[in-house]
Amino acid sequence: MAILFDLDGTLVDTVPLILATVRHAFDGYGWCPSEAEWIAGIGTPLRTQLAGFARAPEDVELLQARYRRFWLAEHDRMTRCFPGALEVVERLAARGHPLGVVTAKVEEGAWRTLRHTGLDRSMGAVVGADSCARAKPDPEPVLLALSRLGRPPSEALLLGDSPHDLVAGRRAGVRTAAALWGACSAEALAAAEPDHRLATIGELLALVDAG
């Protein structure tokens, strides 16, 4: 079985970094989206989210530049795996499961996070917001990751912490598992109709073992 992971909020605890970066990007702009408003859009590409909150289309470039500068400066200090995530990923890889990441980050940013946390050693495919034409909740990123891993949807499971992850997985024809430790509420995840709900990432091992 191939296992696909979302990154932020699923494998790595970066929501505090994301929210701090948003506050920095909008500092001096006159207003800033609330934490709840931003969290509701996690799982969509950064530029798409910013466009939804910018007062004018021409402001998106400035907001994105401010966001990226702060993120690059603070990434290593504020990025860490969720407890047990690295160990679970390494055990799955050691058992021969093809692993991949499907994220709303651009690939360069995703690889930086993976290298910083040591997760990169286990990943056979990384699909970011700039890897294909459409982003989650469209199934294209999920199908691209599976193509790179050489596995069909019928032999795959996707773990994610946002409705965008789960809907993309369902549309791609893979089994889905909701990561209840992430940023989104249990109610929002339930509305996306996941096949499984996991309270901790350690529960993923038993789910995979059960087939």
Rank of each mutant, 00 (worst) to 15 (best):
E87G: 01
A25S: 12
A40R: 12
A133Q: 15
V12K: 03
Y29P: 02
R121Q: 14
L149D: 09
D27A: 15
A110E: 04
V106P: 08
R148N: 11
A206F: 00
L204T: 02
L146E: 00
P45E: 11
L149G: 08
G202H: 06
K105Y: 08
T79R: 00
R148D: 04
P45D: 11
R171L: 15
V126K: 05
F53V: 07
T200D: 09
V89A: 01
C184M: 14
R148A: 11
E90M: 08
D59S: 07
H24Q: 15
K105L: 13
G100A: 06
G173H: 07
S154W: 04
I3Y: 01
L207V: 05
L159M: 13
E87K: 11
D209E: 15
P194H: 09
L189S: 03
S147M: 12
R68D: 11
R55P: 00
V127T: 14
A56F: 00
P33S: 08
L114V: 03
G109I: 08
A104Y: 02
I42F: 15
D209P: 04
T44W: 04
M1D: 04
R68S: 06
V126A: 08
L114M: 09
T21Q: 12
R55A: 15
C32S: 09
G211E: 03
R121Y: 04
M123Q: 06
W111M: 14
E108H: 15
A93H: 14
V167Q: 02
V102R: 04
V12D: 03
A135M: 10
C32E: 06
S122I: 00
A191Q: 14
A192H: 11
A191D: 13
A40I: 02
A156N: 03
E35Y: 07
A145I: 09
G211M: 01
V22Y: 03
L11Q: 00
A93E: 03
P163F: 04
A191L: 14
C132K: 14
A145R: 01
P83K: 13
P139T: 07
S131Q: 13
P152F: 12
P163N: 05
A191H: 13
V102F: 01
F53G: 08
A177N: 07
K136C: 11
L63V: 05
P139D: 02
P141M: 07
L63P: 05
F5W: 11
T103R: 01
A179Y: 09
G128A: 08
G41T: 09
A192M: 12
E107W: 05
I18S: 01
P163Q: 06
T103M: 01
P141H: 10
R112M: 13
L46Q: 08
A104S: 15
I39A: 02
M78Q: 14
A85H: 04
R197I: 05
A168K: 04
G28S: 07
V60H: 04
M78G: 07
R47Q: 14
L149H: 05
A177L: 09
G173A: 00
A168M: 00
A65K: 13
I18K: 01
D195R: 07
L159D: 01
M123A: 12
T48K: 13
R170P: 02
G173Y: 02
P139L: 09
A56Q: 06
A191V: 10
E193Y: 11
P45C: 10
G52Q: 11
A36P: 09
